[in-house]
Amino acid sequence: MRTVTITRDRLGRGPLILVNRSHPLRPAPPPECVPVDSRCPAVALEKQAAALLSACIQSLNGGAQIVPVSGWRSAEEQRRIWDETLHQEGEAFTAQYVAYPGCSEHQTGLAVDLGRAAPHIDFLRPDFPYHGIWGRFRAASVKYGFIERYQAHQTHLTGIAAEPWHFRYVGAPHAALMTEQGLCLEEYSGFLAQTPRRCVLDNGRAVEVRYVPCMGQETEISLPEEGCCQISGDNASGFVVTVWEAG
C-alpha cells in the first residue's frame, strides 16, 4: 500500500462534490469545459463528462432527438437566470427550478439539461419524456456515469422539484451504486461511510468505493500500489476514494 496526503481545499473538487443551498461551491479552479455537441457550441461540460455524454447519445443514435439545452454556467450567468426568473415567475417557482447563485451544479461543469428536439424548447423546463429514446437514454446513461439528479420522491432531500431533464455526471461506479440503492447525491457519502462498497462494471472490471472523513488540514489516504484510483471531495466533510482493481 502507499499513502497520499490530501489537503482540505480538495473537499470542493472532484466529480462527486455535493452542491446545493446548504453546500455552496468552494473556491476552486474553473472546470476545463468543451462543447457537448458541435451543433450547440454554447452548451459545454467538463471535458470527460462531455465525451461520455456524447458517447452515450451516439450509442443510441439519439443525436437527432436529444438536444443539449444548458451545461456549464458562470457565476454571472447563474445570477442573471436567477434574477430574471425571480422577476418573471416569482419566488416560489424560482426556488423550485433555479438553484441559488453559487449553489448550482451547472457552475461545476458536471450537470446538463437535455431536451426533446422541437422547434421551441423551454430553457428552464425542457421536455424530456420517460418513454422512447429519452427513456432509453436514462437507462443507458448510468453506465456512462450519469444520474437523473432531481427526482420527485427525493425533493425533500434535494430541495429542488422534479427535473426529468437534469442529469449529473458522477462517474460510472457511483451512478450504478446510487441507482441500484435508490440514493440521491445528498445521501451518498452517508451510505459509503457505513462500509466500503464493491461493484462490477459492465466491462467486468471490479471497483471498490469507500469514504474517508476529512481529518483537518491534511488527510492521509491509503491506496493500493496497483490499479487506477480516484479521490473526490464531497464538498461537505470527506473524500470518496474509488479504486479500479488491476486486471
Results as ranks from 00 to 15, higher is better:
Gly109Ile: 11
Glu245Ile: 06
Arg26Gly: 10
Gly227Thr: 09
Thr242Ile: 11
Leu223Pro: 04
Val243Pro: 01
Trp165Asp: 03
Pro213Ala: 08
Pro129Ser: 13
Leu52Ile: 03
Gln58His: 15
His156Asp: 12
Pro126Lys: 02
Pro24Asp: 12
Lys47Arg: 15
Pro29Leu: 13
Gly238Glu: 03
Leu183Met: 05
Phe123Ser: 02
Asp127Thr: 05
Ala50Arg: 02
Leu185Lys: 03
Ala51Ile: 01
Ser22His: 13
Leu60Gln: 09
Val241His: 04
Gly135Leu: 10
His23Glu: 03
Ala99Thr: 10
Thr155Tyr: 04
Arg10Trp: 05
Glu84Tyr: 01
Gly63Leu: 14
Ala44Trp: 01
Arg73Cys: 13
Glu186Pro: 02
Ala175Gln: 07
Ser70Cys: 13
Ala162Trp: 03
Gln88Tyr: 02
Ala99Ser: 15
Ala172Asp: 04
Val142Gln: 02
Val69Ile: 14
Glu91Ala: 10
Leu52Ala: 06
Arg168Asp: 07
His120Trp: 07
Glu148Pro: 00
Ala206Tyr: 08
His166Cys: 06
Cys56Met: 09
Glu218Val: 14
His131Asn: 12
Val142Gly: 01
Ala161Thr: 07
Arg79Cys: 07
Leu183Phe: 03
Ala139Lys: 13
Ala193Ser: 15
Ser74Ala: 13
Arg73Ala: 13
Phe167Ser: 02
Lys143Leu: 08
Ser141Lys: 00
Gln151Leu: 06
Gln154Lys: 15
Val170Lys: 03
Gly182His: 01
His87Thr: 07
Pro164Ile: 10
Ala172His: 01
Ala139Gln: 12
Gly204Ser: 10
Glu218Leu: 13
Glu187Ile: 00
Val36His: 04
Val36Cys: 08
Thr179Ala: 10
Pro129Met: 12
Val98Trp: 09
Gln154Pro: 00
Asp234Ala: 04
Gly63Pro: 04
Ala75Ile: 15
Cys33Leu: 07
Arg116Trp: 08
Leu45His: 05
Ala44Met: 12
Glu208Met: 14
Glu148Trp: 02
Arg80Pro: 02
Glu245Met: 09
Asp113Glu: 07
Arg136Leu: 14
His174Trp: 07
Ser222Lys: 15
Thr85Met: 10
Val67His: 06
Ala161His: 11
Thr219Glu: 08
His166Gln: 09
Leu16Asp: 09
Pro101Glu: 14
Arg149Ser: 02
Ala75Trp: 14
Asn203Val: 00
Pro129Ala: 13
Pro35Gly: 02
Tyr97Pro: 00
Leu192Gln: 04
Leu185His: 03
Cys56Gly: 08
Tyr97Ser: 00
Gly204Arg: 11
Ile147Asn: 01
Asp202Pro: 00
Arg210Ser: 13
Val240Leu: 12
